[in-house]
């Protein structure tokens, strides 16, 4: 019965009992936390691990998921097909074709390793969780069912403000920029060639071409992307004329 806290000793006897009563009474007046699940759907957080969806168009039957699965609940069957050469005289290519992709959810422990290791983004978490069955065999979801789950996969939640840009976006933009820059320089070169061909004696207009081009060309020309990678194109635009001028 000894109170561990010294201040409580000095209080009037029974104050601890009264405090306990106050706690329960206060809780009674507050809103309850009960989730009335079948009547009201739960608000699941993003990235809930409900069920695994298969985006089979992305699957290359690399078998990484099946190999990494800790409890061996992924079954993959496939066969090889040869694809005729793309260009006449080329070599035939072989391609893996998916025959069966099944996940046994009675074995799955929802660790998500398969989704992590998939190099081609063919597996996704879906928050759906109401797929209980009366027969355990029904819990082995075959390819079509897994494909159906894909429709329930939510869009990825927005990034936190100030977060690093996703790698794939950076990579995609880089390629796009590169292509655009190539096109721009090619066009410029062509224009230049045309101009010189037309009027060889006339002087060049100062920076006339650069003001009309997009920011991407200035990026590639000045190399400012490496300096400020997080800059959005909108924020970098105003600085473009100065960059171009200098």
């Amino acid at each position: 019965m000894a109170e561990p806290l010294p201040p409580t000793r000095s209080r009037i006897p029974g104050s601890g009992l009264a405090k306990g009563l106050a706690v329960t009474l206060r809780t009674m007046t507050k809103k309850t936390v009960t989730a009335q699940y079948p009547d009201a759907q739960p608000e699941l957080p993003p990235r809930s691990r409900g069920v695994i969806g298969l985006f089979e168009e992305n699957c290359t039957v690399c078998m990484l998921c099946a190999r990494e699965c800790p409890d061996w609940c992924i079954y993959i069957d496939s066969h090889k097909e040869t694809v005729p050469p793309a260009a006449p005289g080329g070599r035939e290519r072989s391609r893996n074709v998916l025959d069966r992709f099944a996940i046994d959810f009675s074995l799955c422990m929802y660790c998500g390793i398969c989704i992590e290791v998939c190099p081609f983004d063919a597996l996704f978490w879906s928050p759906e969780f109401e797929y209980a069955e009366t027969d355990i065999h029904e819990l082995t979801h075959e390819r079509d069912k897994l494909r159906e789950w894909m429709w329930t996969v939510p869009a990825p939640p927005a990034l936190d403000p100030g977060a690093e840009e996703p790698k794939e976006l950076v990579a995609a933009r880089k390629t796009a920029d590169k292509l655009a820059a190539e096109a721009a320089t090619a066009a410029e070169a062509a224009e230049l060639a045309a101009r010189t061909a037309e009027q060889a004696a006339q002087p060049e207009p100062p920076a006339g071409g650069t003001t009309t081009t997009t920011g991407s060309t200035t990026d590639t020309t000045t190399g400012s992307t490496t300096d400020t990678p997080t800059d959005t194109p909108e924020s970098s635009k105003p600085s473009d004329p100065q960059d171009g001028a200098s």
């Binding site: 009474l25 809780t27 009674m28 309850t32 009960t34």
Partner: peptide, 13 residues
């Protein structure tokens, strides 16, 4: 009911 609400629950519904 009272016990449920004192424990932040709803009780039988």
């Amino acid at each position: 009911k009272v016990m449920a609400h004192m424990q932040g629950r709803l009780g039988p519904m």
